[in-house]
Design a protein around this nucleic acid. Sequence first.
RNA 1: UCCUCGAUAGCUCAGCGGUAGAGCAUCCGACUGUUAAUCGGAGGGUCGUAGGUUCGAAUCCUACUCGGGGAGCCA
Length: 431
Amino acid sequence: MSTKTTIAHVGDFAGQAVTLEGWLYNKRSSGKIQFLQVRDGTGFIQCVAVKSEVGEEVFAACDSLTQESSLRVTGLVRADDRAPGGYELTVQHVEAIQISHEYPITHKEHGVDFLMEHRHLWLRVPRQRALLRIRAEVERAVADFLDGHGFTRVDSPALTPSSCEDTTELFQTQYFDQEAYLTQSGQMYMEAAAMALGKVYSAGPAFRAEKSKTRRHLIEFWMIEPEMAFVEHEENLKIQEQFVAHIVKHVLNHCESELHTLGRDIQALSRVEAPFPRMSYDEAIDWLQKHDFDIQWGDDFGSPHETALANQFDRPLFIERYPTAIKAFYMQPDPNRPEVVLCADMLAPEGYGEIIGGSQRIHDYALLKQRFEEHKLPEDTYAWYLDLRKYGSVPHSGFGLGLERTIAWICGIEHIREAIAFPRTLYRLYP
RNA sequence: UCCUCGAUAGCUCAGCGGUAGAGCAUCCGACUGUUAAUCGGAGGGUCGUAGGUUCGAAUCCUACUCGGGGAGCCA
């Protein structure tokens, strides 16, 4: 009799017979011996079939297996120093569940377009498995930290009647006989929820119809948006750095083998501890001007600016107090300097760009109403948002963390599209 | 939207004015420790689309289509 188990647990059955269910990742044969590389989602193991031991029938069954055929294999678990995972399986019996014909993704090189066209199969390779495992652990770390700090998860709507910010482009759709838009941020809804529950967060997709095609952009990406009543700028930043440091530490503690699969520099990640370095917008402009960048006070940073600033440090960098004129309408002006707002962007090291944008929000009714007029925003669709400043308004702050950018940085990958199972990029909606 | 690079076998690419090529994958054969296994053989192509130059175009020119990277903008 054999016990059904998974590759991750074969070590518990050394010397015993087990049955594994999975897929053939690769096969090498030498006429009278075959090496089957089997994966089952939990790991990889090499199964060895020797013709003189298994007999003609089982050996032929092994021979019939092709790349990515699904199978059930029974054999003896054997510790072996030559095996990357420490164990091999000596095959006793093999059952093909389905034979795969001409699997498109070989073990050779492939181009990005081809791989993206076959994303549904590309997910099966060790690298993509590692990325999805780490993504799941990042999401777990997010929930652990926020739930442990008194936050309540509140889910925001995907269909909205209007934009939350006035700049970026929206995906328009029909809501019966009304126009509607896919959400680009749940922030305003989280502000409402924070007045009900104190500390809240949303976690879900955001949609931006921008024609951006860089390694940092997705059309559909996930944002984690905490919002906190009675929290002001300084405390907002402290929570953000603890939050990000916690996520990185969690991944280091739970995803060692996955980071190894990706070839990530563990040392670089282990230096990510709070507090994070900070620069004011003013200091950043000075620094850039001293380093021959053509930029003036009042200009927004471009990607090259952000990369140069962030690359000075081995952990994320806060840049705070940007000019009011270039930031979102809802941001709270610095009481001592109304020309700047109490906001901060968190820039990841190594050129991964902005992973958090956050701010203290305007809580004064008159000032927010004035901003609506300045930005020519339709007051009827935002009446509820103004209401929050009419009925028990309090200072509050929040931020949005870009999940895929955070994952891309932690994993050290070239392109953000690998940080989500089925990326929506410019000009690609399939699969 | 702009800049830039690309499109040749299932995949990755070479060929850049004179008969369409290689490696891998597939199929057949050999091999008892392979680990991107190796070795021998076979099949596999309207050279992205449309036009133009030329005796002759995968190759040069024009337009278009699709895609990669970047800028802007953003998380």
